[in-house]
Design a protein around this nucleic acid. Structure first.
Lengths: 219, 219
DNA sequence: GAATATCTGTTGAATTTTCAACAAAAGGAG
DNA sequence: CTCCTTTTGTTGAAAATTCAACAGATATTC
């Protein structure tokens, strides 16, 4: 567990909790670490909402697939990021989304009952954990607002530009990588892949963007 | 303040807090009550993210308006519901949404610093408040997932049917009112109003729905 | 490095949405 | 009740998206 300390200290769930307490806490919560290969399912839609996940290495995608097989990508969680916490915290019966490994990754899974309810040891840092969870959920809510700001645009071009400017703003640079390939970006923006490619080409010809693979630059 | 007790006891922020404590708490937090007429702005985009709002009577809509003036409706908050809590809890500088009164309404506003940080009186129920806030945010996150499930559909018909079946499921009945007029429903589903009317007429002719104004019935 | 699989860009046709404009219906004010 | 305003439904034309199919580019495997 020790080798993951630096990563866990950056996890929003554990802010303001010192390393010693964190070690104790993880043992107390019976945190387990699981490895997944690329494209493997970390949590499947319909499975128990018991677990809260933390990405130790690699990255995962949060996806929704409807009855027709259409995929929506809700987000991308990278190192130190948390996922599935909303369903656990709301004590939902099951999760309405699927989490898949984007690349080989190590995932920490914690049973939410150890987080939501104080253990018999009355860990003093438990209140801090709840507070951190609240902040994390608030941050997630804001990121959903941003996603809606992007996907509510009506045309492919507007969605794409709204997305790219949002990423540029977040990364504080006009030059950046995006965490999606073309099909994934289309599924994130809720548009057709081929239409997306057409629009990227247009923006390139018009001199508005430069891009190579998943690296973009706004001009 | 007393006349609002029954409403506040149903507010997710105050679950498991008894009436006596709640009274004290509200005084301690300097909660203020403001009245708004229909269509008036309760909180404007860009304003301080300091306040958490609670609907005491009437209802409010959470909306986003982009540079072209296109409105997206993110949700509808009714009696005992909470709004703007995510921005306050994440300590955002300003709010990226606008809250407008849907009808005449009474709103309680609480400065979030009184919620997030313990007061000098060390109110014992403060921890419960944080826990409630966390649950509330988790619930909101889930409702965003549901909204995305609806708006990610590609056609007007699919969006409309996904929305109607979701409401029917929530209300546990095939017959229900929706909180939107046609333009608002279009702005919630991210589609064109006239296209929506066309689709409603089609579904009516096909005998899939019955509707009158904002009352719908699925067959 | 050759063979194979995956990803990306392009095209044209079909479908759908958007937009503007108007008429009918419903609601509110006096 | 009548006038006026707002909401809803309808239409056709323009614009945009989706879909299927394919070719070139890029990775991956052996």
């Amino acid at each position: 567990m020790k080798k993951y300390m630096e990563i866990l200290k950056k996890c929003p769930l554990f802010f303001s909790i010192d390393e010693e307490d964190l070690q104790k806490m993880l043992r107390c919560m019976q945190a387990k670490i699981v490895f997944f290969n690329k494209k493997y399912t970390v949590l499947a839609e319909g499975s128990s909402a018991r677990y809260i996940g933390i990405v130790l290495s690699g990255s995962v995608q949060i996806i929704q697939i409807d009855y027709f097989g259409n995929r929506s990508i809700l987000g991308n969680i990278t190192q130190s990021g948390v996922f599935a916490e909303a369903f656990a915290c709301a004590e939902a019966a099951s999760i309405p989304i699927t989490v898949v490994a984007n690349e080989p990754c190590e995932i920490m899974l914690i049973d939410s009952k150890h987080i939501l309810y104080t253990c018999s040891n009355h860990c003093s840092f438990h209140q801090q954990l709840i507070f951190n969870l609240m902040r994390d959920l608030a941050t997630k809510t804001i990121s959903f607002h941003q996603r809606i700001h992007i996907t509510s645009k009506r045309t492919t071009r507007e969605k794409l530009l709204a997305y790219l400017t949002a990423v540029a703003k977040e990364k504080n640079s006009d030059s950046f990588d995006i965490p999606f390939d073309r099909q994934e970006l289309a599924d994130y923006l809720e548009i057709d892949r081929s239409g997306l490619s057409v629009e990227i080409s247009k923006l390139r010809r018009e001199g508005i963007i430069v891009c190579k693979k998943n690296h973009f630059r706004l001009l």
